[in-house]
Design a protein around this nucleic acid. Structure first.
Lengths: 131, 131, 131, 131
DNA sequence: GTGGTCTAGACCACT
DNA sequence: GTGGTCTAGACCACG
């Protein structure tokens, strides 16, 4: 499950787990139907409490990224519907504004922002292998 | 000092103050040499604890966005050097990655990402008046 | 036995089986004396563990919806007596209160609640063919 | 805070807390802007762990019923927007269907359904005092 | 003093 | 053996 968790970070651990799994889905390393480790397996693997993993899994389920079933396990969702789409698009715009403001303070020219963005897109796609 | 602070947001208030001021600098509404309200003035204006404003000012000074001079006041910095440039570029890249991962989960096509980028850039520049 | 079971739902599978059969009885698709598949047949048909189906049948028998007779099979009950009637009416009232509270939080006006309720009644009756 | 929690019920405690608070809001006993007890106060009052109350509060915040702010407290929300409205309406319809199926199995005539509906609506409104 | 997170360890319902 | 819930008790960031 190659998840990196930084205990010193101020980002909550369960949040890092969520982000890591979402990233792997975006990269195509995890595909619909794939089974995730059990809550307790992943907890041991990442040396954390199972409640922390469970919290991450529950939020991922709310976002329809995964499907949790008692007694059966956890799977990457194939669901197409996206909860709260409109609100999340607004939040995405706000997030973009924040990093463009930061880029301005770093004196980054637009071309460098564009190329950095393309770089990261390629990094995400590369693993996916569909560029 | 038109700063909008949302108490309902989970983003800490001092962070919202920092982001708000950085955004106004990026937009050109605040220029090098401009004087900022004192900690206590701004605290009253935004109806918040002055410790909160002080914390925001301290972080802005650390980032060389503003300059605090005892007795004279607080001014937008004209300094050209950017502390921790390399590290902050890495963080920017990470922020972009997170953003793109979220965009993927919202099924945002590349064109929409591009147009959103141009939109927000224009929004930031518009106030600045240098497009 | 057109039963729809959603593994993603947090409603236990045996509960979904119970509700599905009760719904078919309410719709008149299953009538007193009709024979149900055996536990194992239904388990195969719905691709689930036979323990799960057995648990559903047991609860249905407790509620006198079906009758299990060893060796002969399982039939929709023609019994008129309703176990725990008083208690179940109280529970029904509680359930109604819960969805009225939810309706309030969705800002649904009373007329919409009423029309939604009539809609569902018609949906149930329609299959029954006695409107 | 007159919340009744039944430890013997199979409904999770945090869920009972959520439902209880939603009911009080629907009844008008809690109004926008009203302050709720702190997580720890309510935990003591209801003799449960503060984590359980926190979980309830967090879900209530996700549904925009309340607003949580670190260091300030918890308040009934005045927000008008309802997350996931469409999906929740569908769930409400499903709840009604289940309810009507159960009512059929209890041989409840339509008139009794209607009168029960009015009864419960009045019970909810009565405390609110706007009938 | 507020809510947020985390751990350790327990018990339960479901498959 | 799966996930879900709960308690007890700790520490942290925020205002």
């Amino acid at each position: 499950m190659r998840l990196e968790v930084d205990l010193r970070s101020h980002v909550p651990i369960y949040r890092q787990v969520i982000d890591g799994i979402k990233e792997q889905v975006a990269k195509g390393l995890l595909k619909p139907g794939d089974r995730l480790p059990t809550v307790r397996e992943l907890a041991v693997e990442l040396s954390m409490n199972h409640n922390t993993v469970a919290k991450a899994y529950q939020e991922l389920e709310r976002d329809r990224v995964i499907e949790l079933t008692r007694g059966r396990g956890t799977f990457i969702s194939s669901s197409e519907d996206i909860p709260n789409l409109a609100m999340r698009k607004l939040e995405l715009r706000e997030a973009m504004k924040k990093w463009l403001v930061e880029a301005h303070h770093l004196h980054l020219p637009d071309e460098e922002i564009g190329s950095m963005l393309r770089d990261v897109q390629i990094e995400l796609r590369h693993t996916r292998g569909d560029d």
